[in-house]
Design a protein around this nucleic acid. Sequence first.
RNA 1: GCUGAAAUGGUGGAACUGGUAGACACGCAGGACUUAAAAUCCUGUUCCCGUUAAGGGAGUGCGGGUUCGAUUCCCGCUUUCAGUACCA
Length: 1084
Amino acid sequence: MDYQFKQIEQQWQKFWAENETFKVEVDVNKPKYYVLDMFPYPSGAGLHVGHPLGYIASDIFARYKRLKGFNVLHPMGYDSFGLPAEQYAIQTGQHPAKTTETNINRYRQQLDNLGFSFDWSKEVRTSSPDYYKWTQWIFMQLFNSWYNLDTNQAEHISTLIEKLETIPAQEINAVCDEDVQHLLPSDWSTLSGEEKQAELLKYRLTYLRESTVNWCAALGTVLANDEVKDGFSERGGFPVEQKKMMQWSMRISAYAERLLQGLNHIDWPEPLKEMQRNWIGKSVGAMVKFSLIPNPSPKEKGAQENTKLGYETANSPFWDLLKENSKENRKNATDAELVLWQKLRDSQTGFKIRRQHVIEGFIADFVCLSKGLVIEVDGGYHSKTEALEYDKQRTEFLNQAGFEVIRFSNEEVINQTDKVVSDIKEKLERLTSKSGAPSPLERAGGEAIEVFTTRVDTIYGVSFLVIAPEHELVAQITTPAQQADIDAYIAQTKKKSELDRMADTKTVSGAFTGSYALNPLDGTKVPVWIADYVLAGYGTGAVMAVPSGDQRDYLFAKHFNLPIIQILDAQQIEEQADPTKEGKYINSGVINGLGYKEASVKIVEELKEVGMGYGKINYRMRDAIFGRQRYWGEPVPVYFKPARSAGGNGLPYLIDESELPLLLPEVDKYLPTESGEPPLARAKDWKYKDEYEYELSTMPGWAGSSWYWYRYMDAKNDLAFADEKAISYWKDVDLYIGGSEHATGHLLYSRFWNKFLKDLGHVTEEEPFKKLINQGMIQGRSNFVYRINDAEGKGTNSFVSNGLKSEYQTTALHVDVNIVVNDILDIDKFKASREEYANAEFILENAKYICGTEVEKMSKSKFNVISPDDLVERYGADTLRMYEMFLGPLEQSKPWNTNGIEGVFKFLRKFWRLFHDENWNFTVSDAEPTKAELKSLHKIIKKVEDDVERFSFNTSVSSFMIAVNELTDLKCKNRAILQDLVVTLSSYAPHICEELWVLLGNKAGTLSYAAYPTFNPAHLVENEFNYPVSINGKTKTNVNLPLSMEVAEVEKYILESEIITKYLDGKAPKKIIVVKGRIINIVA
RNA sequence: GCUGAAAUGGUGGAACUGGUAGACACGCAGGACUUAAAAUCCUGUUCCCGUUAAGGGAGUGCGGGUUCGAUUCCCGCUUUCAGUACCA
């Protein structure tokens, strides 16, 4: 029978599924190999021809490794939480679980069609409760952990508590928030349970903190940095703005150095590693303090105690917002305030308390300045999210200014006045014990500007400082004379959108604060400016400007007429800044005459000595925001206590481990509530212990994908995310194939979680993915027809072939690539495709309509989507698998072009024919293989081994063609040869090979675990070689010589041969180069 | 701007440590089979000169260099793609 791919492929796919041919178990007697694909997000569009590229490559590799005797784990699953399903749910009202299920079924069918050797018994879906139970569990471990820099690993939070109980907090070497309190063990012991929780949150590896987030209003959620591209959301392309919000974050910054170092030990593409290095953004430099020349002086600053002056200097950027909020929010609170004031006034508590006092732009209800305590009475507006936000923002600000804040609700003050007063008293008394702490006003003052620099050697070239307009010191250091300038500049900066600020890097702008700072080494007085080229979010939000060495500083100095100081003798600074480090220092105090290296060391020493600086490493990478205000994601296993109804501000607590999974509740709509809360706020009666609010955000898309490769090892386990035995056997992923679009998202977060799980002893390897390959993107290749326009430019019903279109006025229209073959339009199908084309006329060239082409993204709107299903239908899965590999190197991006698939199909047919006679009867012989046959076979055995090991799949396909062409020419029907060839080809074209394997008399299903044929180099040994002979490197002729001839003999032969007479007119050559078995080159 | 990758016939691409550039496949042209078409098979196919043939010349983005010999190594440039962006 002729090659019946359809029947063969269906039969074998069924066989593999029914017999679970590819199911694997832990087997300590066999070496393991873990081949992983980046699992797909099951979208409604289904797979296009680009998706399986990586899956085919990994499948070939997995099958090859099985033949080589490895125990191969090759699983597949679905990253099934995420935005598109939810957007679809919003539009149609269908539950995302339902559409996701439908999409997964379609994906599964498409994957099955291609004959992959996945072990489907290990399938995972991130949206299934028995999977996300463990995502939540890992979240809980993170919450219960802190990062100890002494041991350089994550530890359980209990070891932190032990430390807080025994040593001052300042001596704990932890990665934590900047605003941790400098507690002594005695302070810690007096804190209430709630206060302790609040403090611990600043150390936990996942924590709740107010941070600046990327808010996408159109999607109604925050986005991670890697989900934002050029100020727009990666999914959907909606605008993204910066906004302050209370958010869950992951303290990935704790792992910055390990994430960076780990890159040196893994086999990943260099560009990918480079991207991660850039993202982590390590810079080695120094922190340097520039003392502010008191302006206003500390004495004058003391005058801020005066309400009036304090109010006047309260010009923080938030001022307008504050004024409005405080007015509105306070209207109804006067009763409670009055009650409390009667109990606090005239030092009744033993401490001087002031009412309605302004601190740094905030009006505090009550404040005790000497103890640094602010007492706030909150009204009923409390339940509004905005107000909550505002309260948090204010608390943080006051904390930074050195004040503690306690809050009471109106109800508390009115109904339990005495308890409130005694609470305040108790608090005030406790605060007295902190005698050594700086006074709030001292702390609020800020007597120095701290900068981060990578060129500490240029410190003598500093001619001014620049701080970000958002910098907290701006308000304080601005002199009255400069106030107007600064206000105007801040207003102007705020108006600029993030995008404008990024785009416009040419315009120099800034404003002088009126204040000066002192260079810590030579005492030079330098002015302090603000400018938006300094970013608040990086380093300290302040830079020391060295115009001679930094181009931005140079332009700034030129623009505002500030001095430019040359600091190296080799520096060329007439036209622009010169950042080079060559030469000896001049104008540079203690480092004059030194070179870069010694100078840098010396400066840091000097700074340390005067206590004004120290060496420091900075990372660009920020902590990752870990919450989305969306429905379709993992619920965060956290509730807030005290409950809102009890008037508390609610601190986060974990639910009990035994209560996992915390199921995603049902909601009536997948939209935010009217008050702007996330969709989960719609869930009815969804409260922890019927009392406490749950967290309403869900986890981001990357949560489930950050550990999924472990679940595959033991996918059904109820007791752990995977059994210890499975983890210690499979260890890590040996080969990971996927797109480079995950470079800074998934691949960074996965490495982070892996390191964390290792620190806690749950897994064994520091890096999860030993070897990684990026498959290239497959672009679309669009076809066009050219409609002729009439004199008025209106479209007619005539179409002109591509080659003749220049003679007409035409409009190019996309035409469905599925009715075009080799760029020739199928005119009948075109006419049938739309009613308006039924009577279309065509101007042809060579009796054909040739379409134009262009490379574009593969998308429905461009009519260039090729579905693998169609190609499988027409040519079979084996042909498609081989053709996708044949297209070119796996890593390279290329446009899809179906032209050429015929060649692969013809090859498989020719291969099939090797086993059959002219009448398609299966025929093989048991004769001794000939030398030529063995040579062909062993060439391909070697070639495939080499190619697969270096992931060069395209070259193997060509070599298979050559082998089959050769064996066809040799009329080879030899069983021994053909059977080995079947094994060799089976990882590429498994269906046809299974069929032939059985026809050859082997047991069905055993091919997958057969042994790869052993390469015998003896079969490739030749006696003779046809030497190319070149004159001066240009090949002229060939000469056939025995390989036994030594170099000298060959030379002698050449000298005496007619080649010399023919090409050199008999003249003696200058030199003859002979490389045995390679070439002969005659130098004339 | 910076970082990284790449550039070879009409097309996809091959040439692994410097050693016959264009394997393999598509497309195209010619031929066989056929009443005809499709399918299949055979031959040719880097470009230029040479009517054919023999033969000669050029040639791996561009310009140089190293070497007996360079698609491969070195220097400079151009273009394309990707990432990143005032990171101090």
